[in-house]
Simulated assay, not measured.
Amino acid sequence: MNLELINKRRNNEICSDGVNTFKIFNKDYDKRLVFLESFITAEVEADGVNVPSIEEVTKIDGQWAFKSYVIKGKTLFDLIKENPKDVDKYLDKMVEIHTSIHKHKCPKLPIQKEKLTDYINASELDEGMKIDLLDMLNTCPKHRKLVHGNFTPHNVVITDNGYYITDWNHATQGSASADVARTYIWMLMNMPDYADVYLKKFCDSTNTASKYVRNWIPIVAAARLGKRVSEEEGVLKSLISVVEY
């Protein structure tokens, strides 16, 4: 099979043969997470969200892979980089799509608070800090909205007929504000000029107090530390230290 590499990520590669797209996971990637992601994607698709439909879970050269039809378009990340003068328009579109996700409910998905708890416990923070953060998490209101868990401009593909949202492996049922906190953290590390702009646009669009979203930032940052991504640790720890949010 002749495949062209489209994008290389930490846990997978995106390749294409011109007709199909293949998300090929690393050889050591947990089989359980492969099938969990395929299940979540199918659930979200069934609820009417525009996702690249997984046509097949297969193996390529011994590595697990998803097979989907090629989607012709560009990510919001690429569009922003190519047309920086139109960034305001693209961020508005991103907020529109992000808020559309939160209107859905998928009751079979994992619970956001439980997942955040597991990752905070898996981090190398001292036990006192973990207790404080988990206390903060437990006092946060319980919500059951569909949340993406890693909503970034990379994961929105704009086509001639609309858009598709990719990479649903982190999706859960939970708080939209926590979901936006994760997007804010990602933008702070990757597109810092737009992080606060995006947060304000989201809050204005949804009539949400920015303080409510910011209350989630130390919690979500601590959970992200549980992933043990060394290049992120400096920024994440600086956000967790602002625990008086």
Rank of each mutant, 00 (worst) to 15 (best):
V44I: 04
S210G: 15
V57F: 06
S241M: 08
K72C: 08
K115S: 03
E45G: 06
Q112H: 05
K211H: 13
C106W: 05
N138K: 04
Y245D: 13
K237E: 13
E232V: 02
V242S: 15
V180C: 03
H154D: 13
Y90W: 09
T21F: 12
T41P: 03
I14G: 06
E55G: 08
E55I: 12
M136T: 06
M189K: 06
V229K: 02
A223C: 07
A222V: 08
K72V: 14
E232K: 04
G48P: 08
E45V: 11
M136K: 13
N207G: 15
P107V: 13
W168G: 08
Q112C: 13
K142N: 15
E37T: 06
N161E: 14
N169C: 14
A209S: 15
S175C: 15
E82I: 07
E55P: 04
N20E: 05
D204S: 05
R214L: 13
G149P: 02
G174Y: 09
N150G: 05
C140D: 06
D167A: 07
F39H: 10
I219V: 07
F77C: 07
K89H: 12
T139A: 15
T183G: 10
D160K: 11
T172K: 00
V51K: 04
E232H: 03
H148S: 07
R9S: 11
K59W: 09
V180P: 12
H98M: 09
R32T: 14
V180E: 10
K142L: 15
S205W: 15
K113N: 06
K130A: 10
W168P: 05
D92S: 12
I158G: 03
K93Q: 12
